[in-house]
């Protein structure tokens, strides 16, 4: 089995790393690059805990081969704060207490960020529909939905 050198952008910074053909993106991020926000959950595409943004779109890093992100751009929660200020979605999650054990939080935040780029003021139904690929085993959904609504308000009021 071969290895190959891949180059990609991780949270805005260029990364160059030798990976094995069968290495999963999540393992490269967590074990070799020290990016710990994507979490290993179900491993089979049902829980969304391993979500990262690939060229801005949410994908599952536990079902993505590292070789396939060559030349592309990965964003994780570590890359959301700008100049020491948290992203409005991050702020809203803290303010609404939308975090219990925290395992699902990075995935929810990335998906919520993408949702609010697509839809300015999503209805509750739209929010629920959009985050259905993310599971919270603490069942803290009520506050998560509240936080996403709050983040939408923050962004539209320009408080961001």
């Amino acid at each position: 089995m071969g290895t190959r050198l891949i180059n990609f952008k991780l949270n805005g910074r260029p990364v160059s790393i030798e990976v094995k053909d069968n290495e999963l993106l999540i393992n490269v991020l967590r074990d070799r690059l020290g990016v710990l926000s994507p979490k290993y959950g179900c491993g089979i595409g049902e829980c969304g805990a391993c979500t990262v943004l690939l060229d801005g779109e949410p994908v599952l890093s536990c079902l993505t081969l590292a070789v396939e992100v060559d030349g592309r751009e990965i964003t994780t929660v570590e890359g959301l704060a700008k100049d020491g200020k948290l992203h409005p979605v991050q702020e809203a999650f803290i303010e609404e207490g939308a975090i219990q054990c925290g395992y699902c939080t990075p995935g929810f935040i990335l998906v919520a960020k993408r949702l609010l780029e697509e839809v300015k003021n999503p209805s509750e139904e739209r929010i629920r529909e959009y985050v259905r690929g993310n599971l919270c085993r603490c069942t803290g959904y009520v506050n998560i939905i509240k936080a996403i609504k709050r983040a939408a308000e923050k962004i539209s009021c320009g408080k961001a």
Binding site: M1, G2, R4, K20, D21, N22, E23, L24, N27, Y40, C42, G43, I44, C62, L65, V67
Partner: peptide
């Protein structure tokens, strides 16, 4: 169904990647 003796959802079996 997932066979716990075979399943390792953290690491993929080896293969050669062709693009």
């Amino acid at each position: 169904r997932l066979d716990p003796n075979k399943a390792n959802t953290h690491i993929l079996p080896e293969f050669e990647y062709l693009a």
